[in-house]
Amino acid sequence: MTKWILKGLATGIKTTAYPSVPETAPGVSPGRPGTTYFADKDMELIKHCPAKALFGKAGSVRVDYRRCIHCFQCTRTEGYPSIDWEDGFEWASLAGYPERDQVSITPLGRPFSRSVHIRIVDAGACGACMSEIAQLGKPYYNFHRLGLFVTPTPRKADILLAVGPLTDHMRLALQKTYEAMPSPRRVVAVGTCALSGGPFGPSFISGAGIHETIPVDFSVPGCPPPPLAVLHGLLLAAGRAEPVPLKSRDSARDNPGKEVR
């Protein structure tokens, strides 16, 4: 017993100070492609995206993060210039679905600023998203320090964290979990699969994301989103962080233009 205590003490503090201090350690996030201005001939790169996440707008290549699966084809395809790669992990946003009125989405608010309970539902995820979420509870990220806890029963949950494209066999389970939660409740869809079905959906056996079955409030894009991105999503749902858009940002010299796919 003593050995373990000493071992723990000897290891020291590994936990990140995010969100009070920005986290810059290499390897915490794979980063993601961002808006890049290309010559017209290179706009063909859009066609090379196997996830159909790239689109052109006003002379630039933009990224729809609901679809991007981090396949690196847009940086590593020979014959094309590399797309700009942006670091960071603050990716979470309001759910960007036309059927959801964005104004109606509000974070949980003050009563939940110190204690939020989360129920995770795996609706067909590959395991990487689950692994990244599990990292949150472990020393490097330790989200308990922010008052975030995972609960085994949805009866006590405030946030439903859903991952995976929502397979048919999990549809009922997800629905029941959502219905079992008391209000106020928020749904955070984590990972590209949960946002758009990713490489799996829509198909005969899986849907095109969680929003088809239950209303999604917040989205965390990424394949998989690194732990801090998920944490950003949770803080967003608790009203303790600001959202970023689901499509790569415009810059100052942008003209409003039509999206080209």
Partner: peptide, 8 residues
């Protein structure tokens, strides 16, 4: 609501 059944 009915008792929580683990999504069965």
């Amino acid at each position: 609501r009915t008792a929580w059944d683990g999504g069965l």
